[in-house]
Structure formats: C-alpha cells, structure tokens
Amino acid sequence: MATQQNVTQDPEKDSAVRQATKRNESAMRPPVDVYETSDGIRLIADMPGVSKEHLRLQAEANTLTIEGDLVFEMAERMEALYADVRSTLYRCSFVLSSELDTSQIEAILKDGVLAVRIPKRAAFRPRRIEVQSG
C-alpha cells in the first residue's frame, strides 16, 4: 500500500533525526537513483524493512536528510546464522540547490522503495525558446 507524507519543515521536529543519529549504530546508505525532469528532481531509494512509521524525512536549510529504521519480523530464541545486513538504520542526505522548492517535497513509500519528488520553483522550469527563421 502506498503512503504519502509531507516532509518535516518544522525545526522543532529535528529531534527525531538527531536522536537516531546519536544511536550507536553505523547507518547503511541506501542505493539511490536520482534524475532530473523539466519540473523537478526525483530521488528513489531502496529501503527494505522500512514502513511509514519508521521513516523520517527532513529538509533543513538546503539539505534533505532521509532516515529509516529497518524492522524485522522476529521470533523468540532467535540466533543469527548469516547476515549481509548488520545494521537497522538507513541514512542518506543530499544538498539541494536554490531553484528547488523544499516546501513542496512529496514522498511515497511502497514495498520498501521511497520515491521523493522535489519540484523546481515555477520561475526555474525551462521554457522552450522558439528560433524564428527570417
């Protein structure tokens, strides 16, 4: 199921990201695709095990920070035999540029894939310039 949420802009809410950052665990950097279209930038991140409740997105000044907690289905008296994944924290951050409108960021999380859309301010959307022959 797709869930949509707005990016936190309130500096008071910084604490969620900061607290997680203080956690004594090395974060994994999720693999991302980043591409630009005429109306904005899209960022797609693979974050398996993260649900909407465990995802934190924050645009502060010109930095976009993404954090998520990986949640496993656990069982009693469980012992690890093999682990490619040894952390339960994802984190990545990107510096944005001024033509991007950080107040209009949208994010959708589905099946452990986060899709973020960062629109360009209207004034920065490219206009096609017609060349007239004559």
């Binding site: 289905e73 069982a75 469980m78 690890a80 035999l81 093999y82 490619d84 994944v85």
Partner: peptide, 12 residues
C-alpha cells in the same frame, strides 16, 4: 541481501 537466523523450531 540475505540474512539467515534460526530458532529451535525453524529457520528464518
């Protein structure tokens, strides 16, 4: 990526 765990009754 893969993780494997065991309990007395099952492998996960």
């Amino acid at each position: 990526a893969v993780n494997i765990a065991s309990t007395p009754e099952a492998l996960l």
